[in-house]
Amino acid sequence: MVPVNDLTRHVGPLRQQLNDVAGQVIASGCFVLGPRTSAFESAFASYCGVEEVVGVANGTDALELALRALGVARGHAVAMVANAGMYGATAALACGATPCYVDVEASSATMDPACLERLLRQTGTRPAAVIVTHLYGRLADMPRLCEVARAYGVPVVEDCAQAHGARGKDGRRAGSYGDVACFSFYPTKNLGALGDGGAVATNDPALAGRVRRLRQYGWSAKYRNELAGGRNSRLDELQAAFLCVMLPLLDGWNARRREIAEAYSRGIVHPRIQVPAVAGEEYTGHLYVVRSADRVGLQAHLARLNVASEVHYPIADTQQTVMARMGGMPALPVTEALCGSVLSLPCFPELDEVEVARVIEACNAW
């Protein structure tokens, strides 16, 4: 089977380095909020081109704490897309806020600036924030989206969980456009730990300070709680040490992912399979996603030829049971069409040329 991802192959070449830094952490006796976390926060901030990075326990916590740091609370609304696995909605609901949904562009599957502007112009209650997701590792149209949001005084939260290292045509990296940005280091991410982890990035020191307090109970000093909404959400020393080993390799991994994606986009020529356009550094190749009106048939065909595939994501937020119960969900025609047709093919840095050729041949043989 050609897998969609293979973490054993991914971390195998780093096993000795990872063992070494794990031993150093164990020997140090410092396991939470120590020097390795600080070192990773500093290195990742420099990499992303931002002033501050705050390590937290996971990507969903990053979104929630970023929203709380912006003042999002019960009774507020948060604008977002509905084709990104409901992670943004989970964070908004945890704050007591209500998700409000924006349709996406068909070409990129990311938030449509025109639809965002329509929402902000027409809504009776202006959203307290907008979460922009860089889906599949492809940068959304951040210059235009930021322009629209700021014209209405709405802060922008970048969801960069799939876009570590993506770079716009202006040279800026994912995470440096919005008022605040959120990352996940779940093991399957382009920059993944060996467990859970996340981070919040920003150029606003006051915002970073609020996130630092929120990640540790809302403390302003030890045992002194002054900020509501705090929790225990800290990137531990072991995961920070692993991430410090992996960060220098990220650009090379992303380049290999783009090579594989380009081979697919040039080699898959089946008329019933729509492939994404060849892309530059604005795309990290986190997921390589094709579209087909007969996704079920294509997926079954690939399985018979021992090529794995997955669906990211099959159900729009607006059609999830928990959201449908709330009522008032909008029609999102582009989002709903994508949820019914997208299929992710194998794409990870260690995929070899024989496997890439097998995937292309299997698609074209359908």
Rank of each mutant, 00 (worst) to 15 (best):
T321H: 13
A357M: 06
D196G: 10
Q274S: 12
Q17G: 09
V72K: 06
R234L: 12
L351R: 03
D204K: 14
G230S: 08
P35R: 15
Y47A: 08
E105Y: 01
A77E: 11
N58L: 05
P127D: 14
L238I: 15
C182H: 01
Q17V: 05
A337T: 13
Y152D: 13
V342T: 14
G34H: 13
L227P: 06
R126N: 12
M86G: 08
M323Y: 14
V148M: 05
Y186M: 03
Y264L: 04
F183W: 09
Y136R: 12
R224C: 15
R172T: 04
T133I: 03
V342N: 11
S292F: 08
D159Y: 05
V307S: 04
A279W: 02
R144D: 07
A365L: 02
C182R: 10
Q122R: 15
R118D: 11
A357F: 01
G165T: 01
T90D: 05
S344Y: 02
S108V: 00
A140G: 02
T60C: 05
I260H: 00
V78S: 08
R118K: 15
A241Q: 03
V50Y: 04
Q299F: 05
K222E: 11
A22H: 14
G327L: 07
W366L: 11
A149L: 06
Y264H: 08
A66T: 04
M329A: 14
G168T: 00
P187W: 12
I268V: 10
L93H: 06
N5Q: 14
C95L: 01
E281V: 01
G192L: 05
G55T: 08
A128V: 10
D294L: 11
N5I: 14
G137M: 06
T123C: 15
P346L: 09
K169E: 01
M86E: 09
N364C: 04
Q274V: 09
A43W: 09
T123I: 07
R144E: 10
F31Y: 15
M329R: 15
L227M: 15
A166C: 04
G195A: 12
V11N: 03
T90I: 06
W219M: 12
A228E: 08
R173Q: 12
R258K: 13
V342L: 11
Y264Q: 11
V53F: 04
P155A: 14
S233Y: 00
C339H: 05
V180L: 09
G168P: 00
L302N: 05
P35F: 15
D112G: 06
A337L: 06
A62T: 03
S265W: 01
A293P: 00
W253E: 07
R172C: 07
N83P: 02
E64N: 00
R15M: 08
M246C: 04
A261I: 01
L70P: 03
C363I: 12
L191F: 02
A69Y: 06
D61M: 06
A255C: 10
A255L: 11
A77Q: 13
I268L: 09
A241R: 04
A57C: 00
V334Y: 03
R272N: 13
P205Y: 10
G175W: 03
